[in-house]
Amino acid sequence: MPTENQPERAFIVLSLKHTHRRHKAITLWRANDSGYCWPLERAGVYAESLVLERLGYYNSGCSNIAVPADLVKRLVVDIEYDTKEFGICLPNNAKTWKQLLSAVIHKPDYPSRPEYRGVRYAKEAA
């Protein structure tokens, strides 16, 4: 939590549920829980206190995670999506996910298993 001299940190929520192996970019939540996007300029920025208040919603692990906005800003690149649009987005690859997963606001209740080209997961027992 922020102190009087320290401002509250900002977070961006990433959607594991809406990011698929075929996507070039990681899907981000828009502001006020109002949908999804790929470009950083359209992503919502969430206050640390709000995310911590509702960890199960914003940081469940299996469907979404909250990561520091400053880290996201360092990792974005210019990507052309499949729709021929351009934008500054988070690349959907192993290197990016490794950094994002190590910076999650709080260890989620469920394991995060992002989909990106080349990822392999062991089959779970039925």
Rank of each mutant, 00 (worst) to 15 (best):
E85F: 03
E4L: 12
R21V: 08
E85W: 02
P39N: 04
I105N: 00
R117E: 15
R9D: 11
A10V: 04
K123W: 03
H23V: 05
K17Q: 14
L101E: 03
S34V: 00
K73L: 04
E41Y: 04
D78F: 02
R9H: 12
H106G: 01
G35L: 00
W29Y: 14
T83M: 02
Y46R: 07
G44T: 09
V76L: 05
N5I: 01
V13T: 14
Y36Q: 04
S63Y: 11
I79M: 02
R117K: 12
I26N: 11
R22C: 06
P68M: 09
E53S: 14
N32W: 04
G44L: 10
S63E: 12
V13K: 04
S15L: 04
R22H: 13
N32K: 11
H18P: 00
K84R: 15
P2D: 11
C37P: 03
D70H: 14
R74E: 15
D70P: 03
L14D: 13
R21H: 08
E41V: 15
K95G: 05
V77D: 11
P7I: 02
E124C: 07
W38S: 09
R120F: 05
V77Y: 01
S34N: 14
K73G: 07
R54S: 14
M1E: 10
P114H: 06
Y110W: 09
N92D: 07
C37D: 08
T3K: 02
S60Q: 05
K84D: 11
E115M: 10
P7M: 01
F86S: 13
K107H: 06
L75I: 10
V67S: 11
L75T: 09
E41P: 02
E48D: 11
Y116P: 05
T96G: 01
W97I: 06
Y110A: 15
S63Q: 12
V119F: 01
A66S: 13
E80C: 14
S15D: 04
T96Q: 01
R117I: 08
S112I: 00
Y81T: 15
Y36W: 15
R117G: 04
R42E: 15
S34C: 05
L50A: 05
K107G: 03
Y36V: 03
E85V: 00
P68Q: 06
A125H: 06
E41S: 14
P114L: 03
L50F: 01
G118C: 06
G56A: 01
F86N: 08
V67T: 10
P114Q: 06
H18V: 00
K24E: 12
C89T: 01
N92Q: 09
Y57M: 02
D33M: 08
A69L: 10
E124Y: 05
H106L: 02
A122C: 06
H23F: 13
S60M: 01
L16R: 02
R117M: 10
A126L: 11
V119L: 01
L100V: 10
M1H: 13
K95D: 12
